[in-house]
């Protein structure tokens, strides 16, 4: 048996951020065998170990699963205080954490949209959808 050649994958975290900048959206890796979705992408499916993966675009709208208004943080985030972090679900099978642009009128179940900000950190934020803005 010959030794395996060096490991190559396009499903890297670097490519996740490159696609974010180039395509203006978030992408996940979907396993073609078991349909498991991973964000950021991983080189193999962590549910079934398959290497048969494809890029899928994350839907533009999601719903807040939980949120918290942060008042104490690390050095890198002092300028944003207070800010709201949340986990939002995009369909039944993908949840993504992020900072919400707004601080007021946030509720579990509120609809959010992803906003890409390619030249800033963090590279994306969530914004309450207009229907959920008061």
């Amino acid at each position: 048996m010959s030794q395996p050649t060096s490991f190559r994958t396009e499903f890297t975290i670097e490519n996740f951020f490159r696609k974010l900048k180039e395509e203006g959206s978030l992408s996940a890796a979907r396993c073609e065998k078991c349909n498991f979705k991973m964000i950021p992408p991983r080189p193999i499916c962590s549910r079934c170990l398959s290497c048969d993966l494809e890029w899928v675009r994350v839907p533009a709208r999601g719903k807040i699963v939980s949120f918290s208004e942060v008042h104490v943080s690390s050095e890198n985030f002092q300028r944003l205080l207070p800010y709201v972090v949340c986990i939002a679900s995009f369909g039944d099978d993908l949840k993504i954490p992020g900072i919400l642009k707004e601080v007021k009128n946030v509720k579990v179940g509120s609809e959010v949209e992803i906003e890409i900000q390619p030249d800033k950190k963090p590279e994306y934020v969530f914004a309450l959808s207009s229907a959920d803005r008061v």
Partner: peptide, 24 residues
């Protein structure tokens, strides 16, 4: 590191997310 630390998720806020989910 990639999606939590870079999005300003402190440990109190991570447990706060659990708390709010449990409450809801």
């Amino acid at each position: 590191l990639v999606l939590e630390q870079h999005n300003g998720m402190t440990f109190p806020s991570i447990y706060a997310l659990m708390a709010r989910a449990h409450m809801s």
